[in-house]
Every structure is written in structure tokens, then in C-alpha cells.
Design a protein around this nucleic acid. Structure first.
Lengths: 229, 229
DNA sequence: CGGGCGTTTACAGCTTGTTTACAGCAAGCC
DNA sequence: GGCTTGCTGTAAACAAGCTGTAAACGCCCG
């Protein structure tokens, strides 16, 4: 297992809980970095680049949810929340902000370790899993954000890439114009499906063998589109 | 031998032992920095970047083992422990924390020097064997913090080096502007990606064969960058 | 006070999103 | 059939924003 190299950043202001969690985690041979407030937490996160973030929501200097949201802007590492509050609203807020798990105080050693293991496993799978999607002579590497066709890299604009991702995410399903517009342009321009046709055309030009007779990017007239592997 | 340039940080609270060790080491033409407590020791370690750390476990303000562990988090330099305690548990704790050797008081001059020489030798070997990352005609030695291009050392500023490290750490993956800004400038200036472009340009000037047509430092327009070996 | 370094400013060139225009194409209606 | 109408696909053009680079500025430190 790669757990031996797990590097965890713990952001917790209460010293006794910090010691408790730290010793529990270090007993598993994991590396633990500490921060006692949100500001230092973010600095440590930037310099340490941890594999897992454990953060107490009740920090003295900043809102834990805001911290998570900031962290999520630039890191994919899993986030485990510790909190004295068990309100569902708090949990929702934290999870929506990007947290992956939420542990209510008081908690036991066994549960903490089990949750950390679960998170690290999930993260490891993400890294290990061959992120290569392929159809026809095209392969898509989501981590590298790279699209190849017959081995040659194809340059997709951000919009084109977003659209392709939306199609791949729900491959095989019928997607209405509104759904796709929503996915690419966000709430708003969900009406003018003209953009969508232009970008679908460009995707076909770049990825279909014969753009005039698409095999993977199927038109559902009057409805929308469907992607087919 | 490069021992002539050995720079040693001594963290010891007892003045007479400090004087004794210092004079012993300086007789070998080595440079000795001093700290009389753990806090100042860590500060000195960070600013002096010593080649070797000698630390007394019985410091007044902090646990010597914790100090070693902290030091180990960001430095590979060898650590020699001085201690009045000879319990096996203490040694194991210190060595597991990252210490390389454990010397029990009282100790003789000869043994101290021999152990220091052994440690510096081992460290030198480690440095020689330090893993080289290389791409194109460039090689990066993270342990030595040295970048060479066609065998000639390239001088990188701290910012440039940080950026290069961030790129190397997640080589092959797409890194957004935010991710890179966070890694180099920390939380805060994660918005203005202009700095980033300037430094990416400087890295390309220094490391790419043809900066106008970068092969390793790939631009992902509207997204960020990706480093490629 | 001089040099190195991070930051700011300025600008040219290119990429991209959006707009505009126009050509099939199928279905329906006279 | 001929025509209209609505939907669809493609091409070209343009403005705005993004990107890369050079140069100047200010600041710290020896």
C-alpha cells in the first residue's frame, strides 16, 4: 500500500485535540503537518502539498468553509472536516464547499483512522486509475487535459473541452440543448442553442473521422445530442 | 574532502558543553553556528541551512525529538543527537524521528569527530547519488537545489525555482493558474496570473531549447500550464 | 551605492468566444 | 411539385481577452 507515504495536514486550534489526532495518525507511519489557525493552514498547505487535509471548522481566525473553498481552488487532495457542530446545515455547507468527509466531535480513534484510510484509498484510486477515455481513434486524458487523435495531440479550446467533458460524463445518454448549454456556459444562456451547434460542429471537425457523417456525436433533432463511445 | 567547508548547527542549552563542542569542531576548520534552545535552533536551521545538525535532546523549551522531526520535514541534512539518557526507547524515538546518530554523554572528542565525519561522508554520498530529474538537455538535482543545462549550471532565482518545483512535482498533469500561483506565492495573489506568465517566460528562456516553441513548458490556453518531461 | 531580485508597466501578437451570414434538409401545406 | 418554415451544420470575420516578452522600477541586502 502507498499509505506509508501519506502526508497529512492537520488544521486544528485546540492543542489537546491536535496532539490526539497527530499521535493517532503518526502511529500509522503517516507524516503529519500542523497548523493552529486558518492562515497558517493555507500557507502550510501550499508549501507541504499534503495528500490529505484534516481541518477543524471552528478556527479562531477564519471561516472553515471559506478555507475549504479556497483550498479547493487549487488542490484536489481529499478534505476531512472535524467539527463540534452536528447540524445538518453545517455539514452540507462544508461538503458543498469541497470537503469529502465530516466527522463530529467527539470521535473515536477507530473511526478517524477508518475515514482517513477511506479518503486516501479514494485518492489513490483516482491517481492510479488510467484516466484514458477513448473512442474511435481518439483518446482523452482528463488529468493531463490532453486529447489525442491517432497519437497526435489535438488542441481544444476551453469551451470545446468543457463541452466534450459534459458529453463524456453522460456518455450514451440523451442530453438536451439546455443541459449542454448549462454545462458549458452555466445558468444563463440556456436558450440560444446556436452556440452549441457551432461548438458541436467544431468538435466533430476535430474529432470525428468524417464530420459530415458523425458516428460519436449524434444529433437528436429537436432535442439535443448524444455522445456514443 | 569537502569537509573543509562543513557548516554545523549546534543546538545545546548547557554553556560548557556548547563551548566544548564548538572548540572541538572549530579546530577542524569547520563553521559552527549555535542555538541555546529549540525555537532558536529551528530558526537558525532555516536561515543557515547547515550541512549537519547536532542537537541535545534535553532542551529546556521543547522536546528534542520533536525538533528533529520538524527539521526532517524540510531538510535532509544529517542529525546527530547528544543525550544524557541512554534508554533504548529514547534512542529509538530519536532515530525514528529522523536522527542519524545518537551519542550518550559523556563522550570523548575523538568519538564525536569520528561520528561527525561519518555522517558528513554518508551525506556526501547521498548527495552524489541524489536523483536527477532530467528533460531535454536540462537536469535538476532537487537535493542540491541545482539546475544544469548541457552540464552548465543555470542560476534560478528562488521564485523561478519554486515554480519549477511545483511543475516537476505534478509533471504531466494539467495545472491551473490558481494551483501554480498558490504553490509559488501562497494564499493571496491567486488571482493575478500575470506574475505567473512572466516567470514561466523566464523559465523558458533559461531552460527551453527554443523558448519561442516550448516543448516541456506547455501552455494550456485559458487554463494554465503543464510540464512535460 | 551597486547588484540582484521581485514587481510593475507597456506593448505586440495570437487565441478564443461571439457574431454574422449562408447553405442544406426534412416536413408540411397549398 | 413548388414553396414555406423551422431546424441544423459550416464558414468566415471581428472584437475582446489572453499570452509572451522586454524593459523599467523599487526594494532589500551586502
Amino acid at each position: 500500500m502507498s499509505q506509508a507515504e501519506l502526508r497529512i495536514l492537520l488544521i486544528e486550534d485546540e492543542p489537546h485535540i491536535r496532539r490526539f489526532v497527530r499521535s493517532t495518525l503518526e502511529a500509522q507511519q503517516w507524516t503529519v503537518y500542523e497548523a493552529d489557525c486558518g492562515q497558517r493552514g493555507l500557507v502550510e498547505a501550499g508549501s507541504r502539498q499534503p495528500d490529505l487535509l484534516i481541518v477543524d471548522l471552528g478556527l479562531p481566525d477564519m471561516d472553515g468553509v471559506a478555507l475549504i473553498r479556497d483550498f479547493r481552488h487549487w488542490s484536489q487532495a481529499p478534505v476531512l472536516v472535524l467539527s463540534a457542530r452536528s447540524d445538518e446545515a453545517d455539514k452540507i455547507a462544508a461538503l458543498d464547499a469541497g470537503a469529502d468527509d465530516y466527522l463530529t466531535k467527539p470521535f473515536g480513534v477507530g473511526e478517524l483512522l477508518a475515514r482517513v484510510r477511506a479518503l486516501s484509498r479514494r485518492h489513490a484510486r483516482q491517481l492510479e486509475a488510467s484516466p484514458l477515455l477513448s473512442f474511435g481513434e481518439v483518446s482523452v486524458d482528463l488529468a493531463r487535459r490532453e486529447v489525442r487523435r491517432g497519437g497526435v495531440e489535438v488542441a481544444l479550446t476551453p469551451m470545446e473541452y468543457k463541452l466534450l467533458c459534459a458529453l463524456l460524463r453522460d456518455a450514451g445518454k440523451a442530453l438536451t440543448h439546455r443541459m449542454l448549454m448549462q454545462a458549458v456556459w452555466g445558468p444563463g444562456h440556456t436558450d440560444d442553442s446556436h452556440y452549441l451547434r457551432i461548438y458541436m460542429s467544431r468538435l466533430r471537425q476535430k474529432l470525428e473521422q468524417d464530420p459530415a457523417q458523425p458516428v460519436h456525436f449524434i444529433t437528436l433533432s429537436g432535442v439535443g445530442y448524444r455522445f456514443q463511445f
